[in-house]
Design a protein around this nucleic acid. Structure first.
Lengths: 248, 248
DNA sequence: AAAATTTGTCTATTGATATAGACAACTATA
DNA sequence: TATAGTTGTCTATATCAATAGACAAATTTT
């Protein structure tokens, strides 16, 4: 709530400097600091958290490396990045339209694609036989040049043959689906969890190790309830919050 | 996806044993291990993660301490706890009914309550003047004896005077609100994020330091749209996932 | 009964983490 | 122009985290 408060724990496997860095990130994401505002001096932070000044310096160094803070000798340490993006989730969740107003540009980059046999979970979600061919797309959502999501998406290979080419060309799932005669679709289910980012997420989302990702597992269906898409998306918790829409 | 896979990172402020413990917890929560199933032997885990056996032992020791695993000399290490609870969130989100079928008993424990002036955020959410008196309830949701949520809730003190007594008595928000003539209410908005648990969460939710919590910030309204309740809830990500309901 | 498998304990060594103190370098202010 | 406040750098020390190897103790399999 009050950002920089909240104490830290010792000998728990997470170093003190990492915990302090997390707290600072959290405070910034909560909007407790205006852009370009000065962080409290190192000595003040050290006192607040009950640690040595050098420990605070380690935390700040990590965030400077990350591009979140900027330290200036003699002046102070300043906040560069801003409040979290708010990503809406509802029946008509769309990447591009969801971030309108908060960003000036956004698109989905196709990182790779492949065809593979469907596992149990994916087959059930898509309503096809286990082992049937599915197309897997690995994508990254970008807004104003910053990565904001990393998703793995599966489509029935029979029905959506060639969708990876459409994705690469258009940079939009919605537009790609139109080529297959699907002009509208709804989100049928969403399950939400959170975990530490793995190596893949770290690289794709430009995160520092130890970062947290929000994970959504969703099924999209046509208007008559036919499942067409199964997706697991990861959002960096320090840059994105999810806003659940009541109706739509 | 496949639970125990996913690599780990070095020199990032999070110790290897803590990362491995997280991965194991995650795998269990994903349902990759049946209850009482044996974990792979220490040597196999050490090889899989590319670390020394002793490092794996540190991770296992932490989870044994936590009550998640049980090690038996000569036999192996066994999984005690189960799959994640799935907490539904929709227009009629209710703590008690939401976990029916997954648990046999659940209630909300009132940890403390107080009356305070409303801050900007709370005043806006509840549609009252900034500084007007609000009642704050600190609660913990429990299911089958395990803590599953930790919430801070605010009500307009004028309209809901004495609601803390009703909560303490009934252990239910829904029942308490009925005493104030509110027989039904809807969830107006929900914003979702994730962060590392702070000291308060760790204690209340019986977590180990470094654990992740899912955070929801929600406003409940009467059927005619009047805001009645503002709440921030924290869910332990290793024990709970959130299932978003499409309609309701 | 013997062998193989698995967890438990011990010693030793290396690098990362955290504390402590001192002082330099730079900036803003009185 | 001092002075106070702030970040940057250095040295030293103690503890935690991780690796390495060896062997004991308990259980299961052959």
């Amino acid at each position: 709530m009050t950002g920089l408060a909240a104490s830290i724990e010792r000998r728990n496997g997470v170093s003190l400097w990492r915990q302090i860095a997390d707290r600072i990130l959290q405070a910034i994401a909560n909007g407790d600091f205006a852009e370009n505002a000065a962080l409290p001096p190192e000595m003040a932070l050290a006192e607040r958290y009950g640690v040595n000044r050098h420990t605070v310096r380690s935390a700040i160094a990590a965030l400077v490396q990350e591009g979140v803070l900027k330290a200036e000798q003699g002046r102070g340490t300043f906040v560069l990045s801003r409040k979290r993006l708010s990503y809406p989730i509802g029946a008509r969740t769309r990447f591009s339209t969801g971030l309108q107003g908060q960003t000036t540009e956004r698109h989905i980059a196709l990182l790779s694609s492949s065809t593979e046999p469907a596992g149990r979970r994916i087959a059930e979600a898509l309503g096809i036989a286990k082992g049937a061919a599915v197309i897997r797309l690995e994508t990254r959502g970008e807004a104003d040049g910053h990565p904001v999501s990393r998703a793995t998406t599966w489509f029935d290979a029979k029905r959506f043959a060639g969708i990876e080419a459409a994705m690469a060309e258009t940079g939009s799932i919605t537009t790609s689906l139109k080529r297959f005669g699907i002009n509208d679709y709804l989100r049928h289910s969403t399950v939400l969890s959170a975990r530490h980012a793995d190596a893949d997420d770290l690289a794709a989302l430009d995160l520092q190790p130890g970062a947290i990702v929000l994970v959504t597992v969703a099924v999209n269906v046509t208007l008559d309830g036919q499942p067409i898409q199964f997706a697991e998306s990861r959002f960096p918790a320090e840059r994105v919050e999810l806003r659940l829409l009541a109706n739509d």
